[in-house]
Amino acid sequence: MKRILIFKGYLITGILFFIFSCNEPKTKEIAAVNPEDCEWYVVPESPLNGGTKNRLDVYVLRLYPNKSYLLAADLIFETGTWSFDDDKQLMVLRSKTRDGSEQQRYVMDEKQKNGKTLFTFYNQYPFTDDDKDEVVEVRALPNQSSRNPYDLTMHTWRNKPATAETPEQIKERTSNYLRFLEAIYAHAQDNNLENPGGRWYPKPVKFFSNKVSMAYADELTDWYDCFYNEAQGIEAYKLLSGALMKVKITGDDDVSRNLNCVKQLISNL
Rank of each mutant, 00 (worst) to 15 (best):
T79N: 00
G80M: 04
G80W: 05
T81L: 13
F84I: 09
D86V: 15
Q89F: 00
Q89G: 01
M91C: 10
V92M: 02
T97K: 07
R98D: 00
D99F: 12
D99K: 05
S101W: 02
Q104P: 01
V107M: 04
M108E: 11
D109R: 04
K111N: 03
N114R: 10
N114E: 07
L118I: 05
F121K: 00
Y122L: 09
Y122K: 04
N123Y: 11
N123A: 08
Y125D: 08
D129V: 10
D130N: 13
D130R: 12
D131M: 10
K132Q: 12
D133L: 15
E137P: 00
E137V: 03
V138Y: 01
V138I: 13
R139Y: 08
R139I: 12
A140V: 08
P142F: 11
N143K: 10
Q144S: 04
S145H: 09
S146T: 14
N148P: 03
Y150L: 05
D151G: 04
D151L: 06
L152W: 14
L152T: 14
L152P: 03
T153Q: 13
T153G: 10
T153L: 12
N159V: 15
P161T: 09
T163Q: 13
A164E: 09
E165P: 00
E165L: 14
T166M: 07
T166P: 01
I170H: 03
I170D: 11
T174L: 05
S175G: 10
S175I: 07
Y177V: 06
F180D: 00
L181C: 01
I184C: 07
Y185P: 01
Y185Q: 03
Y185E: 06
A186D: 04
A186V: 07
A186P: 00
A186R: 05
H187Q: 13
A188F: 06
Q189F: 13
Q189I: 12
N191I: 01
L193K: 04
N195H: 15
P196K: 08
P196N: 10
R199H: 13
W200T: 01
K203E: 04
V205I: 07
F207T: 02
F207Q: 01
N210S: 06
